[in-house]
Every structure is written in C-alpha cells, then in structure tokens.
C-alpha cells in the first residue's frame, strides 16, 4: 500500500541547455513531491520537459539548479560513480523503444543489470527467472529481441527494470511504440506491479487513455508544473 513518505522531492528544479548560443530553459523552478507507492503519470505536450524530468529523476542527467532528493538521497551531490551505483540500486528504467541489447537473449538482457550487483550466479538466476515469470515472458527467455514482438520486447524491458527490485520504476512512454492490444497488456502489467508490490511508478505518456491507469496525473507545460501545488491528490 502507498504511504505518505515522499520518495521524490524536487525543489526549484531547473534544467537549461545551451543550443546555438541560446539558453533553452527546459524545466523552470519545478517543485514536485511524489510519495512512495504512488503511480504517477507525467503528461504534457512535446517539448514540455517530461522526458527531461524523468532523466533527472533517474540520475542519467543532471539539473542546472535546484534540489532533487530521490529515495532519501540528494542525487545532485553524488559523483558520477556514486550516481551509477545509486541508479543500479534504486532505479528501474523502461524506455519507449525498449532498448534491449540486440545480441543478448531475453534472459541475458534481464540479467544485465545484475552484473554490477555483487551477487552469486545462483541468486542472479533466481532473480532473472522470477522477473521473467512476473512479466509472463518466461517461455521466450532464449529468444533474441529480433525474434520478439514489440509487446514481448517491452515485457522483457520491464523485467530488466524490476529485476534489481528498485524502489522507483520510471517509464518513458512505455506503450508509445505498441499497438492497442499490446499497450493494454503492458499497462495491465504495470498496474499489477503497482497493486501487488506497492511499486512506485512514474510514467511519461501522451495518451490520456494510458494515464488513467495512474493514481495521479501531473501535467507539465513549457517546463512548468501545471498540477496545482504539485502534491499528491
């Protein structure tokens, strides 16, 4: 069950890029709190800063200014190596285009994040099997990404994201490249992970039909939060 403990706290978060001698302000003074166990949809038009915010939450990009505490850790102060270790422990990331490694099987793709965890081969095997089982793709474990459908690839990507049992699951348009039936299956799966395991999920989506699966919807426009107060509803 969701608790009121915050897992994400953004305060005056800003992200600017320099492009052609001009400063592009992607995120502006963003304040947002997400509590542990919530399923949040981030919506907004293209260029509103959704994916940039997701990248900052994942620690794969750094904010220009402001505070960002995720899972009790101020990730703006971490070194590159510490941030990588933190990502390995705390974050699971699901990409719109799955981003599976083409030369690895489904099993090996799911196993990938566990290589940087100091665990035994047996434990690794147990966790991979469990993750594949939980996304109902065990029967395709020996298939390469090119031998899987889009929906199956995304299931493998979800298994890879949850295999480390992260406290935060981030999904960037997880159904954006799928047909309606596959998209429904993926959203059902994410909903189940949230309901059964109390998994905190932050999902970027364009699609209101996808966003309805979330408990809370946060709207971004031109790098600013549109949702009143940015607090859990």
């Amino acid at each position: 069950m969701a608790t009121v403990e915050p897992i994400i706290r953004c305060s005056s978060l800003e992200k600017h890029y320099e492009r052609g001698g001009e400063t592009v302000r992607v995120l502006e003074k963003l304040d947002l709190t997400i509590t542990r166990g919530q399923f949040v949809a981030l919506m907004g038009p293209s260029g509103s800063g959704k994916t940039t915010l997701l990248n900052l939450l994942a620690g794969i990009d750094r904010p220009t200014a402001g505070g960002l505490v995720v899972d009790g850790q101020d990730i703006t102060t971490l070194s590159r190596a510490a941030l990588a270790h933190w990502r390995a422990r705390s974050v699971g990331y699901i990409f719109q285009l799955y981003h599976l490694v083409p030369v690895l099987t489904a099993y090996e793709n799911v196993e990938l994040p566990l290589y940087v965890h100091n665990i035994s081969r047996r434990e690794r095997h147990r966790r991979v099997c469990e993750a594949l089982e939980s996304v109902s793709i065990s029967d395709r474990h020996a298939h390469y990404p090119s031998q899987l459908s889009g929906g199956q690839e995304q299931r493998v990507a979800i298994a890879r994201a949850i295999v480390t049992q992260p406290s935060l699951l981030l999904a960037d348009e997880p159904t954006g490249d799928l047909d309606r039936a596959s998209a429904a299956g993926i959203m059902e799966l994410l909903g189940r992970l949230h309901r059964e395991h109390g998994q905190t999920i932050v999902m970027v989506t364009h699609d209101p039909a996808t966003a309805v699966h979330a408990q809370r919807t946060v709207h971004l426009d031109k790098g600013r939060l549109v949702e009143p107060h940015g607090v859990a509803s």
Binding site: A81, A84, A88, R89
Partner: peptide, 16 residues
Amino acid sequence: EREVSILQTLGFTRLH
C-alpha cells in the same frame, strides 16, 4: 553508443 548508454542507465560505472 546506445548500448553504452543502456548499460550506464542500468548502473554500469565508468570502470565497468
């Protein structure tokens, strides 16, 4: 390059 970014996202450090 994309594969490297995937590995970095999964927690692979520079040393890895």
